[in-house]
């Protein structure tokens, strides 16, 4: 096997070149775009690069970021989840509503468990009953929202609890706790998705479900598990949001599912599955966060933000599809 070593070295040098191949450039595009945006805003406004502002961007991005990381799993496995915004709201509602009765720890646990169960229901609908993911999660979205409305009686729920408020407003040293949670979630997810067998199977099932089954992979399990993961992370982001606002409005979390999908898609995760990565999604989250923050700093009309965000999502997907068709 002496020649084996030579081949290995040779392929290592090839790996460097591989980093600059077309697909890679496309995924680096998002980072380049982000840097350009940051440079632009730094030139336009002195306030932008101040540490306080940057931390602010990070904290604001954390809530949607946690959910977007979860969404990345579902999108890569070839699914789609519209119910996460409602799951987010309900999780916050459960945490706030149960806290006075059963205490902080148990109420958080119930909220997170609800997220996992909601995700599993989505997964079973999609895998076992073959309901289209879009439709299944649309139904669950309404059901979860309805449960929150019933539970809260349609009124905003408030939480005066100081320790609960720490989750959203506290600091670990100089770092806001939501940012810490987002970072931990990101690192764990990146490890699972990129370094474990579980993660590899998620890519394989999303890339070609039939070939995965032909290779002996239980495709249904990995799809259902992805829905459970996004459910859990949606609930977690709901808890963080509720804690930060110390309240849960009846429509809390509504619209977040679309921001999460937008972030993943801007990052280059394919809606048709099999493609994407955690760090790309995180880049997408920051793009959205920087846009939010930048528009506020520059005092640009808030409504135009939506137009701009929408355009970026469409442009990112169009670019992705176009570059695929060309090769």
């Amino acid at each position: 096997m002496t020649s084996g070593g030579q081949v290995a070295r040779k392929s290592l040098s090839l790996q460097k070149a591989w980093f600059l191949t077309k697909g890679r450039l496309r995924s680096l595009g998002i980072v380049i775009g982000l840097i350009i945006m940051i440079l632009f805003l730094a030139l336009k406004s002195e306030a932008f690069l101040k540490p306080a502002n940057l931390l602010n961007i990070l904290r604001q991005s954390s809530v949607v970021g946690i959910m977007a990381v979860g969404m990345t799993f579902v999108l890569i496995v070839g699914g789609f989840d519209l119910s996460v915004g409602s799951a987010m709201g309900l999780a916050g509602g459960l945490a706030v509503g149960l806290l006075p009765k059963i205490g902080l720890g148990p109420s958080l646990l119930v909220a997170l468990l609800m997220g996992i169960v909601a995700g599993m229901v989505n997964g079973l609908l999609v895998v076992k009953l073959n309901v289209n993911a879009f439709v299944a999660t649309l139904g669950i979205m309404n059901i979860l929202r309805g449960i929150l409305l019933m539970y809260s009686g349609g009124k905003t729920m408030f939480s005066p609890d100081r320790s609960f408020a720490l989750i959203g407003s506290g600091y670990l040293g100089p770092i806001p706790i939501p940012v810490v949670i987002f970072t931990v979630v990101t690192l764990c997810s990146a490890f699972i998705l990129h370094r474990t067998r579980f993660g590899r199977y998620i890519y394989a099932v999303g890339g070609n479900e039939e070939a995965s089954i032909f290779s002996g992979i239980d495709a249904g399990f990995y799809k259902a598990a992805s829905f459970a993961i996004v459910g859990l992370l949606a609930a977690l982001s709901g808890v963080v949001l509720a804690s930060r606002l110390q309240s849960v409005a009846p429509m809390a979390g509504s619209g977040y599912e679309l921001d999460a999908i937008a972030a993943a898609v801007i990052g280059g995760t394919s809606i048709s599955g099999g493609q994407g990565s955690i760090w790309q999604t995180v880049a997408g989250v920051f793009v959205l966060g920087v846009i939010n923050n930048g528009f506020n700093i520059l005092n640009v009309n808030e409504y135009i933000q939506l137009v701009f965000k929408g355009a970026i999502v469409v442009a990112a997907v169009a670019l992705d599809t176009y570059s695929k068709r060309k090769t």
Partner: peptide
């Protein structure tokens, strides 16, 4: 359709099963 995950690398397809 059934044998390969076309979007994954050579190495990842080889070790899939």
């Amino acid at each position: 359709r059934y044998g390969l995950v076309m979007g994954l690398s050579l190495a990842k397809n080889l070790t899939l099963a």
